[in-house]
């Protein structure tokens, strides 16, 4: 801040020195060509009197020729320099006393604000980085949790599939066994029914044959044989 202040003070001084360095004679007199010539003539008449032919005086002619020399395009007239310098000084003093503190305060405030903003931005960046880190951590945790859940779901699905297949196989085996048992039972029942049917037919035929052959004589012999068996203890 001190360096910047010194530069502000040095700038007007360099400007004044520059103006003084490039000042020309005409400009130093503070007149135009016509004014310069009128002033030369006026001074010559006062010096030599009005009766003297000043225009043919070599000295006056030399002075007039000097009026034709090119004026300094930069160097203002003296009164302008005086007034301008005074105004500049007043303005400079006002600027130093009033403007500079205001500008300095504004710039300090601006700088403070910028610093505050930078600090806030830095804090925000830090916070953002923390949030990002937290977010990335949570994201990683979420991904890990998701991966774990997927693994668990996959494991559970595999287990369910295995259980279903085992149960299905067990049910199929039970169904096959039951079907085999039913078939065997049906076969056994069919054989038994067939055997009973055959036996019934055969016994019916045998009964009819026996009935037709059991006349009174045969009945008597059967009774006698029975009595003999009872007596013999073989009945």
């Amino acid at each position: 801040m001190r360096i910047r202040r010194n530069r502000l003070l040095a700038a007007p001084l360099f400007a004044l020195l520059g103006i003084a360095a490039f000042a020309s004679p005409a400009q130093a007199s503070g007149e135009s060509v016509g004014g310069c010539m009128a002033e030369v003539i006026h001074e010559a008449e006062e010096h030599h009197g009005k009766d003297h032919d000043v225009l043919h005086d070599e000295h006056v002619q030399d002075e007039l020729e000097k009026c034709f020399e090119a004026p300094n395009p930069i160097l203002p007239e003296l009164n302008e320099i005086v007034w301008g310098g005074a105004a500049f000084l007043i303005l400079f003093v006002l600027m130093v006393k009033k403007g500079f503190p205001a500008v300095k305060g504004a710039m300090d405030a601006r700088a403070e604000k910028i610093r505050t903003d930078l600090d806030a931005a830095e804090q925000a960046r830090t916070d953002a980085q923390a949030v990002q880190a937290d977010y990335e951590e949570r994201l990683a945790d979420a991904k890990a949790e998701a991966s774990r859940l997927i693994d668990e779901a996959r494991g559970a699905a595999d287990q369910v599939r295995t259980d279903l297949m085992a149960r299905h196989e067990a049910e199929m085996a039970e169904l096959r066994a039951r079907a085999a048992a039913d078939i065997e039972s049906s076969r056994t029942q069919a054989i038994a029914d067939l055997r009973a049917e055959v036996a019934g037919i055969a016994l019916g035929a045998a009964e009819r044959v026996v009935q037709s052959s059991l006349d009174t004589e045969v009945q008597g012999r059967l009774i006698d044989a029975y009595i003999d068996e009872v007596a013999g203890g073989n009945g």
Binding site: A199, A206, E207, V210, L214, L222, I223, Y226
Partner: peptide, 26 residues
């Protein structure tokens, strides 16, 4: 009975009938 004799004495039964033999065959 068809043929033969079935004797019942109280709870004792002496079955020498043709029916019994047919039943045994069945």
């Amino acid at each position: 009975v068809l043929g033969g004799v079935v004797t019942e004495i109280g709870d004792d039964i002496i079955d020498g009938s043709v029916r019994r033999r047919l039943n045994q065959l069945r």
